[in-house]
């Protein structure tokens, strides 16, 4: 049999025998960033649509967790850096061709906005709350008055944040599994789905719960559609992308991907939410936790598998 055997004398740590430069921090951050983007997207959407009072859970209650999850995500990103004391170099330049630069600046903008969003709705959790400081009181009044404008800024930033979590990977043509433009929309949809699921926990009315369960089911269907398209694209592409897809179609990542991401993270919660809509009694947190788990596993598996996929020469 004709064979080609490649032997390399290189054994650089974290690079050989296969790349292992990004560990748990990056997929965890990508999940939290997507979740934050999802929650802020729906919060600002219902302000823009003028339906704030009908969707109090989405607009006023759920965003309380966003600054915290962004802080944890940023902490994970910081832990990932190997030259930590120089992290501020990110903010000395804007590099339009670097997804990571986009991400750093988007986070710089969206983190304070998420804090403002929580601050102007703080009375939802503490009804008697009064801002003691005059400046804070004026700022509060200013943002409340211009809430629709704030919502427009937030919705644009949340979409950039959601898409960027995927583009961060897809911009690397060195890793064939990541090198597909489907990852941007897929991660955005997955983040929106996680956001919708989290909002269900904060929903204030039966109607709000039903609407977000329906939105979540729709997003899961779109995700499945995108996943099928991703693999169709790979299978019809070059050898390295066929090899990348094969990791999920019989290779090492087949079982974890299809069981944890597709079945447990998408199909089962979609069925549970459908049963709920049919008035079956399902504890609400079960589909929510499954969707969040699936979203997290999607990032972990794509992150680790992508680093194993490569060009051979």
């Amino acid at each position: 049999m004709r064979e080609e055997l490649i032997t390399s004398g290189r054994l650089n740590p974290n690079v050989d025998p296969y790349l292992e430069i990004w560990h748990w921090q990056i997929p965890l951050y990508l999940f939290l960033g997507g979740l934050a983007a999802g929650i802020l997207f729906f919060a600002s959407l219902y302000v823009i649509l003028g339906k704030e009072n009908e969707y109090r859970g989405a607009v006023r209650r759920a965003p309380i967790i966003v600054p915290f999850i962004l802080a944890i995500g940023l902490g994970a990103l910081f832990l990932d850096l190997r030259h930590k004391l120089f992290f501020w170099q990110l903010y000395t330049t804007i590099k339009l061709e670097s997804p990571m630069s986009w991400g750093a600046w988007t986070l710089m903008a969206i983190t304070p906005i998420s804090i403002i969003w929580v601050a102007i709705h703080i009375q939802e959790y503490f009804p008697g709350w009064e801002w003691k400081n005059v400046i804070l009181r004026d700022l509060n009044a200013f943002f409340l008055k211009n809430k629709v404008g704030l919502a427009w800024v937030t919705i644009v930033l949340s979409v950039i944040l959601g898409i960027y979590t995927g583009i961060l990977f897809s911009a690397f043509n060195a890793r064939p599994l990541w090198n597909t433009s489907i990852l941007g929309p897929l991660f955005l949809t997955s983040g929106l789905s996680a956001g919708a699921a989290a909002i269900i926990l904060f929903a204030q009315s039966k109607k709000e719960k039903v609407v977000f369960a329906k939105i979540d089911i729709m997003l899961i269907v779109i995700e499945l559609f995108l996943i099928i398209h991703m693999f169709m694209g790979f299978r019809a592409s070059t050898q390295v992308q066929i090899d990348a897809a094969d990791m999920f179609l019989g290779g090492a990542y087949t079982a974890p991907f299809w069981i944890f991401v597709v079945v447990l993270g998408m199909i089962v919660p979609a069925i549970l939410e459908l049963m709920e809509l049919r008035h079956k009694k399902i504890p609400v947190y079960i589909p929510v936790v499954l969707v969040l788990f699936g979203s997290l596993m999607l990032r972990f598996i794509i992150s680790y598998a992508g680093q194993m996929s490569r060009w051979l020469y």
Binding site: R10, N14, V15, D80, R82, H83, Q89, M100, F172, R175
Partner: peptide
Amino acid sequence: PHECIGCGACITSCPYDARYGHPDGYV
């Protein structure tokens, strides 16, 4: 080195895997 934050994006982006993370933190 003093502008590098050690994020690893360049290591990931290289199809030849020609870069590595120096023990001092930079690439």
